[in-house]
Design a protein around this nucleic acid. Structure first.
Length: 197
DNA sequence: GATGCGATTCAC
DNA sequence: TGAATCGCATCA
């Protein structure tokens, strides 16, 4: 495989990036890279969750989630346990037109494949990070990262020099409320998605 | 495609 | 104390 985009390359994503609104951030993160614990991956699937008028957002029914929004800067990781089994990674969006979260749903692995395979217990590259619970397991992300400000490090980067990612949009999946909002974003043609769009 | 798994938060 | 929950792996 061709070596590309080592850690530290590309444009660092700063806090201002997360000071707009969840939909803008979710779309804008497609094609960006996450580097963490020696592993790297291109974000190929995200979902937006809005504090305002979005029953599927944690803040809608969870006071602790609203307190988290109030008490942390934009770009902070919001990590929670789903179904008692899987850690899910979100980034806090606040201070702009609309507050909310971006859920990272799938990555295309680029670095640290051996460590990912070790943590995941599977070999196929396409299956290492093709789901929100899979990617946190592959990257070793859990409650220890809840509240960590990812814009303070080199972990989030926009890749320069490549083709502008073609982003497709569809309804969010895995939820029971507000299912009609087209707030799921994917890198068109990626074979590492959690499900077809 | 159906089913078992099982932590955390919040409401009752 | 109980209900609900923003998946995944393992079956068939």
């Amino acid at each position: 495989m061709k070596e590309r985009n080592p850690p530290g390359s590309g444009l660092r994503i700063r806090g201002e990036f997360f000071r707009s609104d969840p939909v803008t951030c979710a779309r804008g993160l497609i094609g960006a890279e996450i580097h963490w614990k020696g592993c790297g991956g291109v974000i190929v699937e995200t979902e937006a969750y809005s504090v305002r008028d979005d029953p599927a957002c944690h803040t809608f029914s969870r006071p602790s989630s609203r307190a988290f929004v109030a008490g942390h800067p934009p770009g902070t990781a919001y990590v929670y346990l789903n179904y008692g089994v899987h850690w899910l990674l979100n980034f806090l969006v606040k201070g702009g037109e609309e507050d909310g979260f971006v859920l990272i749903r799938a990555l295309e692995p680029t670095r640290g494949l051996a460590a990912m395979r070790r943590r995941r217990g599977v070999e196929a590259r396409k299956k290492l990070c093709s789901g929100p619970g899979k990617l946190t397991q592959a990257f070793g992300i859990d409650r220890a990262q809840h509240g960590y400000d990812f814009t303070k490090g080199d972990s989030l980067r926009l890749v320069l020099g490549g083709a502008i990612p073609r982003v497709a949009t569809g309804p969010r999946i895995g939820i029971s409320k507000a299912v009609d909002l087209p707030w799921r974003f994917v890198l068109a043609g990626s074979d590492c998605l959690s499900a077809p769009l």
